[in-house]
Computed example of a mutant assay.
Amino acid sequence: MKGSSLDRPERVDAMEQPVLLVAHHAGIVTLTLNRPTVRNALDLALARAIATTAQELAQDASLRLVVLRGTPPAFCAGADLTERSKMSPRERTAHTDAIAAAVEAIAELPVPTIAAISGACLAGGAELALACDLRFADTTARIGFPEVRRGIFPGAGGVLRLPQLVGRGRAADLLFSGRTLDAQEAFRIGLIDQLCEPGHLDTMLDHWITELRQAAPGAVRAVKAALQRVLTTDAVTLADIRSLRRALDESPEYEEGLRAFAERRPPSWANG
């Protein structure tokens, strides 16, 4: 999309490009899985590239948002089973661990993350999407956890995160059966947060980015930290959350927000 905030890469020959494309635009980073001939399946190289890149991005104070997507025709079809079929059991475990590390690196990013989903989003690819804060998709999206049909189950956090999104019963249905949802059903049960027709995903993302830029970067990071505590800690108290909120009371961003309110103008954020 011309003029997009996302700088979406065009489809390219995977033999001539890295397995992960990274585009920066004014604090917005788009990570594009780039193995289109195998529907962006996660081999060791791609899993390690995602983990390393996400860990580096986590140190960037100017970062506002990370968008994760795949080079068409898919978001991510899961682990590269062709590669895995040639591995020893020990190597298969290392492959699973590498995918889990990639998923956790995305989950631990200190800023909002969005999975932009077109086409297949399956198995480890679906776990990557679950690790994001939001999932935006077009109607070509198909989401599922087919691991039980291969004799395993989701090993990169899907069993933990899926019930939090859709409830235990629906999660059990999907995980026990291994069936794949179309975009409409995934949206209906809350697995997809926003849904659009094909060709409109970038427009939907750009609209959300415009809304995000009106929010103070420090406040957004604090909200992300609070949500991470709520979702990953067994006993979170109001005092734990208030400690994150209290730190904002003396921040320059809060001062600017108050001034902008009094002066009836939009706030001007340092990393806006």
Rank of each mutant, 00 (worst) to 15 (best):
P252M: 00
D240A: 09
W208G: 06
V223C: 11
P18K: 02
A260H: 04
R245I: 08
H24P: 03
A226T: 06
T180C: 12
T233Q: 15
C132W: 04
L175K: 11
A137T: 11
A47L: 07
G70Q: 13
L31V: 04
R213I: 03
A47C: 01
L165R: 15
A45G: 05
A23C: 12
A215D: 01
V148E: 00
L248Y: 03
D138C: 10
Q214P: 06
L31T: 05
A247D: 02
M87P: 00
L68P: 02
D202C: 09
C196R: 11
D240Q: 12
P9I: 05
N40H: 00
L6H: 08
W208N: 02
G257S: 10
L6T: 08
T233C: 14
V159M: 14
S243G: 15
D138S: 14
L33A: 05
A219H: 11
V103L: 03
F176E: 14
L238P: 02
A226L: 11
A102P: 07
R264D: 10
P112V: 07
A102K: 07
P18A: 06
D7V: 01
A120E: 03
D182N: 09
R168W: 12
A129Q: 01
R265I: 05
G125H: 06
Q184S: 07
S251Y: 04
Q55S: 13
R221A: 15
N271P: 01
T210F: 09
D7R: 08
R179I: 02
V67D: 10
R69Y: 04
F153V: 07
H95S: 14
M204T: 01
P252R: 00
A247L: 07
A270D: 00
R229W: 03
T52E: 15
R170P: 05
F136C: 04
H24A: 01
T37I: 00
R64H: 04
T113I: 10
S177E: 11
A260S: 15
L63V: 03
C121H: 09
A47V: 01
A260N: 08
A239Y: 01
G272W: 04
T237P: 05
R150V: 02
A101Y: 03
D43N: 11
E16W: 02
G151A: 06
A141T: 04
L44I: 07
P154S: 06
A126P: 04
G167K: 03
